[in-house]
Protein backbone atom coordinates (compact mmCIF):
# COMPACT_ATOMS: atom_id res chain seq x y z
CA UNK A 1 0.00 0.00 0.00
CA UNK A 2 1.35 3.36 -0.97
CA UNK A 3 1.41 5.12 2.35
CA UNK A 4 2.75 8.31 0.92
CA UNK A 5 0.09 8.88 -1.70
CA UNK A 6 -2.38 10.31 0.72
CA UNK A 7 -3.40 13.90 0.25
CA UNK A 8 -2.68 15.90 3.34
CA UNK A 9 -5.38 18.43 3.82
CA UNK A 10 -3.79 20.10 6.84
CA UNK A 11 -0.56 20.56 4.92
CA UNK A 12 -2.10 22.11 1.85
CA UNK A 13 -0.27 25.11 0.46
CA UNK A 14 -1.46 28.35 1.88
CA UNK A 15 -1.47 30.11 -1.46
CA UNK A 16 -3.52 27.37 -3.02
CA UNK A 17 -6.13 27.72 -0.38
CA UNK A 18 -6.42 31.46 -0.82
CA UNK A 19 -6.88 31.07 -4.54
CA UNK A 20 -9.56 28.48 -3.95
CA UNK A 21 -11.43 30.40 -1.32
CA UNK A 22 -11.08 34.11 -1.97
CA UNK A 23 -13.17 34.70 -5.11
CA UNK A 24 -16.71 34.29 -3.77
CA UNK A 25 -16.72 34.13 0.02
CA UNK A 26 -20.18 32.86 0.92
CA UNK A 27 -22.14 34.44 3.70
CA UNK A 28 -21.96 31.22 5.67
CA UNK A 29 -18.20 30.98 5.14
CA UNK A 30 -17.75 34.55 6.38
CA UNK A 31 -19.81 33.83 9.45
CA UNK A 32 -17.80 30.71 10.23
CA UNK A 33 -14.57 32.62 9.85
CA UNK A 34 -15.79 35.38 12.15
CA UNK A 35 -16.80 32.78 14.74
CA UNK A 36 -13.40 31.15 14.54
CA UNK A 37 -11.69 34.54 14.89
CA UNK A 38 -13.67 35.26 18.05
CA UNK A 39 -12.84 31.83 19.40
CA UNK A 40 -9.13 32.26 18.69
CA UNK A 41 -9.20 35.63 20.46
CA UNK A 42 -10.81 33.95 23.45
CA UNK A 43 -8.36 31.09 23.68
CA UNK A 44 -5.41 33.43 23.23
CA UNK A 45 -6.03 34.48 26.82
CA UNK A 46 -5.83 30.98 28.27
CA UNK A 47 -3.06 29.39 26.21
CA UNK A 48 0.00 28.06 28.01
CA UNK A 49 2.48 30.90 28.13
CA UNK A 50 5.67 28.94 27.68
CA UNK A 51 4.64 26.37 25.10
CA UNK A 52 8.06 24.85 24.62
CA UNK A 53 8.69 24.18 28.33
CA UNK A 54 5.18 22.91 28.82
CA UNK A 55 5.40 20.45 25.94
CA UNK A 56 8.84 19.30 27.11
CA UNK A 57 7.72 18.78 30.71
CA UNK A 58 4.69 16.75 29.72
CA UNK A 59 6.02 13.22 30.19
CA UNK A 60 3.68 10.33 31.01
CA UNK A 61 5.24 6.94 31.55
CA UNK A 62 3.73 3.63 32.61
CA UNK A 63 0.44 3.74 30.75
CA UNK A 64 -1.61 0.93 29.27
Amino acid sequence: MAEREQKKKPAREKGEEEIAETPEPSEKGEKLKAELDDLLDEIDDVLETNAEDFVKSYVQKGGQ
Partner: peptide
Protein backbone atom coordinates in the same frame (compact mmCIF):
# COMPACT_ATOMS: atom_id res chain seq x y z
CA UNK B 1 -9.23 20.33 17.60
CA UNK B 2 -8.09 20.72 14.01
CA UNK B 3 -10.27 23.78 13.55
CA UNK B 4 -8.69 25.50 16.57
CA UNK B 5 -5.11 24.52 15.84
CA UNK B 6 -5.21 25.14 12.11
CA UNK B 7 -6.93 28.47 12.67
CA UNK B 8 -4.22 29.48 15.13
CA UNK B 9 -1.52 28.22 12.78
CA UNK B 10 -2.84 30.30 9.90
CA UNK B 11 -3.32 33.39 12.03
CA UNK B 12 0.28 33.32 13.25
CA UNK B 13 1.75 31.73 10.13
CA UNK B 14 3.28 28.81 12.05
CA UNK B 15 4.70 25.55 10.77
CA UNK B 16 3.16 22.30 11.98
CA UNK B 17 6.15 21.52 14.20
CA UNK B 18 5.82 24.73 16.21
CA UNK B 19 5.70 24.02 19.96
CA UNK B 20 2.67 26.29 20.33
CA UNK B 21 0.58 23.88 18.25
CA UNK B 22 1.79 20.90 20.29
CA UNK B 23 0.89 22.82 23.45
CA UNK B 24 -2.59 23.53 22.11
CA UNK B 25 -2.95 19.84 21.28
CA UNK B 26 -2.26 18.97 24.94
CA UNK B 27 -4.31 21.82 26.31
Amino acid sequence: KYRLIDGYRERHDLSWDDARLAAMDLQ
